[in-house]
Amino acid sequence: MWRLVITRLCVAVPMIVMVSTATFFLGALSPIDPAEFVLGPDPTQEQVDRVRQEMGLDRPVLAQFQEWAAGAVRGDLGSSVFTGEPVSATLIRALPVTLSLTLGGLVLSVLLGLPAGIWAGLRAGRLGDRVTTGLVTVGQAVPNFWLALLLILAFAVHFRIFPAVGYVPISEGVGPWLHSITLPSIALGTAAGAVLARQTRSAIIGVLQQEYIRTALAQGLPRWRVVGKFGLRNAAVPIVTVIAFEVASLFGGSIVVERMFSMRGFGSVTIDAVLRRDPDVIQGVIVIAAAVMIVIQLVLDLSYAWLNPKVRPS
Protein backbone atom coordinates (compact mmCIF):
# COMPACT_ATOMS: atom_id res chain seq x y z
CA MET A 1 0.00 0.00 0.00
CA TRP A 2 2.60 2.55 1.12
CA ARG A 3 4.89 1.47 -1.64
CA LEU A 4 2.21 2.38 -4.15
CA VAL A 5 1.73 5.81 -2.57
CA ILE A 6 5.46 6.49 -2.60
CA THR A 7 5.90 5.30 -6.18
CA ARG A 8 3.04 7.52 -7.28
CA LEU A 9 4.49 10.54 -5.51
CA CYS A 10 7.86 9.89 -7.14
CA VAL A 11 6.13 10.03 -10.51
CA ALA A 12 4.15 13.10 -9.46
CA VAL A 13 7.12 15.38 -8.91
CA PRO A 14 8.63 15.07 -12.42
CA MET A 15 5.14 15.34 -13.86
CA ILE A 16 4.50 18.69 -12.16
CA VAL A 17 7.95 19.88 -13.21
CA MET A 18 7.20 18.83 -16.79
CA VAL A 19 3.79 20.50 -16.86
CA SER A 20 5.04 23.77 -15.42
CA THR A 21 8.11 23.86 -17.67
CA ALA A 22 6.01 23.19 -20.76
CA THR A 23 3.50 25.87 -19.83
CA PHE A 24 6.25 28.38 -19.13
CA PHE A 25 8.15 27.95 -22.35
CA LEU A 26 5.05 27.67 -24.52
CA GLY A 27 3.92 30.89 -22.89
CA ALA A 28 7.23 32.51 -23.70
CA LEU A 29 6.83 31.49 -27.34
CA SER A 30 3.45 33.17 -27.50
CA PRO A 31 3.26 36.16 -29.84
CA ILE A 32 1.12 38.02 -27.35
CA ASP A 33 2.92 40.55 -25.18
CA PRO A 34 1.48 41.07 -21.70
CA ALA A 35 2.93 44.56 -21.60
CA GLU A 36 0.59 45.69 -24.33
CA PHE A 37 -2.35 44.54 -22.27
CA VAL A 38 -1.21 46.53 -19.27
CA LEU A 39 -0.77 49.67 -21.30
CA GLY A 40 -3.90 49.52 -23.40
CA PRO A 41 -4.09 50.44 -27.08
CA ASP A 42 -1.26 52.17 -28.98
CA PRO A 43 1.47 52.61 -26.35
CA THR A 44 4.76 54.21 -27.28
CA GLN A 45 7.82 51.98 -27.60
CA GLU A 46 9.32 53.72 -24.55
CA GLN A 47 6.31 52.82 -22.41
CA VAL A 48 6.40 49.22 -23.58
CA ASP A 49 10.10 48.91 -22.80
CA ARG A 50 9.61 50.36 -19.35
CA VAL A 51 6.76 48.03 -18.48
CA ARG A 52 8.61 45.02 -19.88
CA GLN A 53 11.52 45.91 -17.67
CA GLU A 54 9.27 46.24 -14.62
CA MET A 55 7.71 42.88 -15.38
CA GLY A 56 11.08 41.30 -15.92
CA LEU A 57 10.17 40.36 -19.47
CA ASP A 58 13.31 41.91 -20.97
CA ARG A 59 15.55 39.28 -19.44
CA PRO A 60 16.33 35.93 -21.11
CA VAL A 61 13.53 33.36 -20.86
CA LEU A 62 15.81 30.92 -19.07
CA ALA A 63 16.57 33.45 -16.35
CA GLN A 64 12.88 34.22 -15.98
CA PHE A 65 12.11 30.51 -15.59
CA GLN A 66 14.90 30.08 -13.09
CA GLU A 67 13.53 32.86 -10.97
CA TRP A 68 9.97 31.51 -11.18
CA ALA A 69 11.04 27.96 -10.35
CA ALA A 70 13.14 29.12 -7.40
CA GLY A 71 10.07 30.88 -6.03
CA ALA A 72 7.73 28.00 -6.80
CA VAL A 73 9.82 25.58 -4.78
CA ARG A 74 9.38 27.87 -1.77
CA GLY A 75 5.64 28.12 -2.41
CA ASP A 76 5.81 31.53 -4.06
CA LEU A 77 4.08 31.33 -7.42
CA GLY A 78 4.66 34.98 -8.33
CA SER A 79 1.97 37.60 -8.50
CA SER A 80 -0.56 39.04 -10.89
CA VAL A 81 0.63 41.71 -13.27
CA PHE A 82 -2.68 43.49 -12.92
CA THR A 83 -3.73 43.28 -9.29
CA GLY A 84 -0.30 42.68 -7.77
CA GLU A 85 -1.88 40.02 -5.58
CA PRO A 86 0.28 36.92 -4.96
CA VAL A 87 -0.90 34.07 -7.19
CA SER A 88 -1.00 31.60 -4.31
CA ALA A 89 -3.40 33.86 -2.37
CA THR A 90 -5.70 34.16 -5.41
CA LEU A 91 -5.71 30.42 -5.99
CA ILE A 92 -6.23 29.51 -2.34
CA ARG A 93 -9.31 31.75 -2.38
CA ALA A 94 -10.57 30.30 -5.68
CA LEU A 95 -9.88 26.61 -5.14
CA PRO A 96 -12.62 25.88 -2.56
CA VAL A 97 -15.26 27.25 -4.95
CA THR A 98 -14.21 24.97 -7.79
CA LEU A 99 -13.65 21.96 -5.56
CA SER A 100 -17.10 22.46 -4.04
CA LEU A 101 -18.73 22.45 -7.46
CA THR A 102 -16.63 19.49 -8.60
CA LEU A 103 -17.61 17.55 -5.50
CA GLY A 104 -21.27 18.53 -5.80
CA GLY A 105 -21.33 17.55 -9.48
CA LEU A 106 -19.55 14.29 -8.71
CA VAL A 107 -21.95 13.30 -5.94
CA LEU A 108 -24.92 14.11 -8.13
CA SER A 109 -23.55 12.29 -11.19
CA VAL A 110 -22.83 9.19 -9.12
CA LEU A 111 -26.27 9.29 -7.50
CA LEU A 112 -27.88 9.62 -10.94
CA GLY A 113 -25.58 7.65 -13.17
CA LEU A 114 -24.64 4.60 -11.12
CA PRO A 115 -28.15 3.30 -10.33
CA ALA A 116 -29.42 4.19 -13.81
CA GLY A 117 -26.49 2.39 -15.45
CA ILE A 118 -26.82 -0.70 -13.27
CA TRP A 119 -30.57 -0.80 -13.81
CA ALA A 120 -30.23 -0.49 -17.58
CA GLY A 121 -27.35 -2.96 -17.73
CA LEU A 122 -29.36 -5.60 -15.92
CA ARG A 123 -32.23 -5.09 -18.37
CA ALA A 124 -30.08 -4.78 -21.49
CA GLY A 125 -32.11 -4.80 -24.66
CA ARG A 126 -35.48 -4.44 -22.95
CA LEU A 127 -37.80 -1.46 -22.81
CA GLY A 128 -36.48 -0.07 -19.53
CA ASP A 129 -32.95 -0.16 -20.92
CA ARG A 130 -33.94 1.51 -24.16
CA VAL A 131 -35.75 4.34 -22.36
CA THR A 132 -32.78 4.87 -20.01
CA THR A 133 -30.28 4.79 -22.87
CA GLY A 134 -32.40 7.31 -24.77
CA LEU A 135 -32.49 9.69 -21.79
CA VAL A 136 -28.75 9.24 -21.33
CA THR A 137 -28.08 10.13 -24.97
CA VAL A 138 -30.11 13.32 -24.58
CA GLY A 139 -28.43 14.10 -21.25
CA GLN A 140 -25.02 13.85 -22.88
CA ALA A 141 -26.04 16.38 -25.53
CA VAL A 142 -27.02 19.14 -23.10
CA PRO A 143 -24.21 21.69 -22.62
CA ASN A 144 -23.72 22.24 -18.90
CA PHE A 145 -23.76 26.04 -19.08
CA TRP A 146 -27.05 26.01 -20.98
CA LEU A 147 -28.55 23.75 -18.35
CA ALA A 148 -27.18 26.18 -15.76
CA LEU A 149 -28.94 29.05 -17.52
CA LEU A 150 -32.23 27.12 -17.69
CA LEU A 151 -31.94 26.24 -14.00
CA ILE A 152 -31.33 29.90 -13.15
CA LEU A 153 -34.34 30.95 -15.21
CA ALA A 154 -36.54 28.33 -13.58
CA PHE A 155 -35.41 28.16 -9.96
CA ALA A 156 -33.85 31.55 -9.34
CA VAL A 157 -35.77 33.94 -11.60
CA HIS A 158 -39.21 32.34 -11.86
CA PHE A 159 -39.44 30.40 -8.60
CA ARG A 160 -37.11 32.15 -6.22
CA ILE A 161 -35.91 29.00 -4.46
CA PHE A 162 -32.17 29.13 -5.11
CA PRO A 163 -29.79 32.06 -5.57
CA ALA A 164 -28.90 32.98 -9.15
CA VAL A 165 -25.42 34.16 -8.25
CA GLY A 166 -22.72 33.86 -5.63
CA TYR A 167 -20.94 31.27 -3.55
CA VAL A 168 -21.24 30.90 0.22
CA PRO A 169 -18.13 29.34 1.83
CA ILE A 170 -18.69 26.26 3.93
CA SER A 171 -17.27 28.14 6.91
CA GLU A 172 -20.51 30.16 6.99
CA GLY A 173 -22.53 27.00 7.50
CA VAL A 174 -23.19 23.79 5.64
CA GLY A 175 -26.82 24.72 4.87
CA PRO A 176 -26.10 28.00 3.08
CA TRP A 177 -23.12 26.39 1.33
CA LEU A 178 -25.28 23.56 -0.02
CA HIS A 179 -27.95 26.08 -0.97
CA SER A 180 -25.47 28.04 -3.04
CA ILE A 181 -23.97 25.07 -4.87
CA THR A 182 -27.15 23.10 -5.58
CA LEU A 183 -27.99 24.55 -8.99
CA PRO A 184 -24.40 24.56 -10.29
CA SER A 185 -23.97 20.98 -9.11
CA ILE A 186 -27.07 19.87 -11.01
CA ALA A 187 -25.86 21.70 -14.11
CA LEU A 188 -22.48 19.98 -13.86
CA GLY A 189 -23.64 16.58 -12.69
CA THR A 190 -26.28 15.86 -15.32
CA ALA A 191 -24.05 15.32 -18.34
CA ALA A 192 -21.42 13.62 -16.17
CA GLY A 193 -24.12 11.36 -14.76
CA ALA A 194 -25.21 10.49 -18.29
CA VAL A 195 -21.67 9.49 -19.24
CA LEU A 196 -21.33 7.46 -16.06
CA ALA A 197 -24.67 5.72 -16.67
CA ARG A 198 -23.63 4.73 -20.18
CA GLN A 199 -20.27 3.36 -19.07
CA THR A 200 -21.74 1.59 -16.06
CA ARG A 201 -24.33 -0.04 -18.30
CA SER A 202 -21.73 -1.47 -20.64
CA ALA A 203 -19.51 -2.56 -17.74
CA ILE A 204 -22.43 -4.46 -16.22
CA ILE A 205 -23.34 -6.03 -19.56
CA GLY A 206 -19.75 -7.10 -20.06
CA VAL A 207 -19.50 -8.68 -16.62
CA LEU A 208 -22.81 -10.52 -16.93
CA GLN A 209 -21.42 -12.35 -19.93
CA GLN A 210 -18.47 -13.68 -18.01
CA GLU A 211 -18.34 -17.36 -17.17
CA TYR A 212 -17.93 -16.76 -13.45
CA ILE A 213 -21.44 -15.31 -13.34
CA ARG A 214 -22.71 -18.61 -14.73
CA THR A 215 -20.66 -20.41 -12.06
CA ALA A 216 -22.26 -18.38 -9.30
CA LEU A 217 -25.72 -19.11 -10.71
CA ALA A 218 -24.86 -22.80 -11.08
CA GLN A 219 -23.95 -22.79 -7.39
CA GLY A 220 -27.57 -21.96 -6.74
CA LEU A 221 -26.98 -18.42 -5.48
CA PRO A 222 -29.94 -16.06 -5.84
CA ARG A 223 -29.78 -13.59 -8.70
CA TRP A 224 -29.61 -10.48 -6.49
CA ARG A 225 -26.68 -11.99 -4.63
CA VAL A 226 -24.85 -12.87 -7.84
CA VAL A 227 -25.28 -9.34 -9.16
CA GLY A 228 -24.96 -7.49 -5.87
CA LYS A 229 -21.96 -9.22 -4.42
CA PHE A 230 -20.02 -10.61 -7.38
CA GLY A 231 -21.12 -8.66 -10.46
CA LEU A 232 -20.79 -5.16 -9.06
CA ARG A 233 -17.33 -5.78 -7.69
CA ASN A 234 -16.16 -7.03 -11.08
CA ALA A 235 -17.76 -4.11 -12.91
CA ALA A 236 -16.24 -1.67 -10.44
CA VAL A 237 -12.82 -1.36 -12.11
CA PRO A 238 -14.06 0.21 -15.37
CA ILE A 239 -16.61 2.26 -13.44
CA VAL A 240 -13.97 3.70 -11.11
CA THR A 241 -11.89 4.62 -14.16
CA VAL A 242 -14.79 6.58 -15.59
CA ILE A 243 -15.43 8.31 -12.28
CA ALA A 244 -11.80 9.40 -12.05
CA PHE A 245 -11.93 10.72 -15.59
CA GLU A 246 -15.12 12.55 -14.66
CA VAL A 247 -13.48 14.35 -11.77
CA ALA A 248 -11.12 15.93 -14.28
CA SER A 249 -13.91 16.88 -16.63
CA LEU A 250 -16.09 18.22 -13.81
CA PHE A 251 -13.16 20.33 -12.64
CA GLY A 252 -12.87 21.74 -16.17
CA GLY A 253 -16.63 22.07 -16.55
CA SER A 254 -16.94 24.08 -13.37
CA ILE A 255 -14.88 26.79 -15.11
CA VAL A 256 -17.89 27.58 -17.28
CA VAL A 257 -20.63 26.93 -14.77
CA GLU A 258 -18.94 29.20 -12.18
CA ARG A 259 -19.06 31.93 -14.75
CA MET A 260 -22.81 31.41 -15.22
CA PHE A 261 -23.34 31.77 -11.46
CA SER A 262 -20.83 34.63 -11.10
CA MET A 263 -18.67 32.70 -8.66
CA ARG A 264 -15.00 33.68 -8.20
CA GLY A 265 -13.49 30.24 -8.65
CA PHE A 266 -10.69 28.76 -10.69
CA GLY A 267 -12.65 29.47 -13.85
CA SER A 268 -12.91 33.20 -13.44
CA VAL A 269 -9.28 33.39 -12.40
CA THR A 270 -8.20 31.37 -15.43
CA ILE A 271 -10.30 33.21 -17.96
CA ASP A 272 -9.35 36.65 -16.66
CA ALA A 273 -5.72 35.60 -16.73
CA VAL A 274 -6.00 34.31 -20.30
CA LEU A 275 -7.85 37.36 -21.59
CA ARG A 276 -5.31 39.70 -19.93
CA ARG A 277 -2.23 37.51 -20.56
CA ASP A 278 -1.29 37.37 -16.89
CA PRO A 279 1.58 34.85 -17.13
CA ASP A 280 2.17 33.97 -13.47
CA VAL A 281 -1.50 33.37 -12.84
CA ILE A 282 -1.86 31.02 -15.84
CA GLN A 283 1.22 29.19 -14.71
CA GLY A 284 -0.13 28.86 -11.18
CA VAL A 285 -3.50 27.60 -12.35
CA ILE A 286 -1.94 24.82 -14.39
CA VAL A 287 0.45 23.71 -11.66
CA ILE A 288 -2.28 23.56 -9.03
CA ALA A 289 -4.68 21.78 -11.40
CA ALA A 290 -1.98 19.21 -12.21
CA ALA A 291 -1.41 18.67 -8.49
CA VAL A 292 -5.14 18.15 -7.91
CA MET A 293 -5.32 15.63 -10.76
CA ILE A 294 -2.32 13.74 -9.41
CA VAL A 295 -4.01 13.39 -6.03
CA ILE A 296 -7.13 12.06 -7.79
CA GLN A 297 -5.02 9.61 -9.80
CA LEU A 298 -3.46 8.37 -6.58
CA VAL A 299 -6.87 7.75 -5.00
CA LEU A 300 -7.84 5.92 -8.19
CA ASP A 301 -4.76 3.70 -8.08
CA LEU A 302 -5.40 2.81 -4.47
CA SER A 303 -8.97 1.81 -5.19
CA TYR A 304 -7.80 -0.27 -8.18
CA ALA A 305 -5.49 -2.19 -5.91
CA TRP A 306 -8.40 -2.84 -3.58
CA LEU A 307 -10.74 -3.89 -6.37
CA ASN A 308 -8.42 -5.98 -8.47
CA PRO A 309 -6.28 -8.49 -6.56
CA LYS A 310 -3.99 -9.02 -9.56
CA VAL A 311 -2.42 -5.58 -9.23
CA ARG A 312 -2.18 -5.75 -5.46
CA PRO A 313 1.42 -6.25 -4.32
CA SER A 314 1.36 -9.29 -2.05
Binding site: F251, G252, I255, A273, R277, I286, M293
Partner: peptide, 12 residues
Amino acid sequence: MPFLLVAITLIA
Protein backbone atom coordinates in the same frame (compact mmCIF):
# COMPACT_ATOMS: atom_id res chain seq x y z
CA MET B 1 -5.80 17.08 -17.12
CA PRO B 2 -9.21 18.72 -17.40
CA PHE B 3 -9.90 19.11 -21.12
CA LEU B 4 -11.25 22.64 -20.91
CA LEU B 5 -8.36 23.84 -18.77
CA VAL B 6 -5.79 22.52 -21.25
CA ALA B 7 -7.72 24.09 -24.11
CA ILE B 8 -7.83 27.44 -22.35
CA THR B 9 -4.12 27.31 -21.57
CA LEU B 10 -3.36 26.65 -25.22
CA ILE B 11 -5.64 29.53 -26.16
CA ALA B 12 -3.65 31.68 -23.76
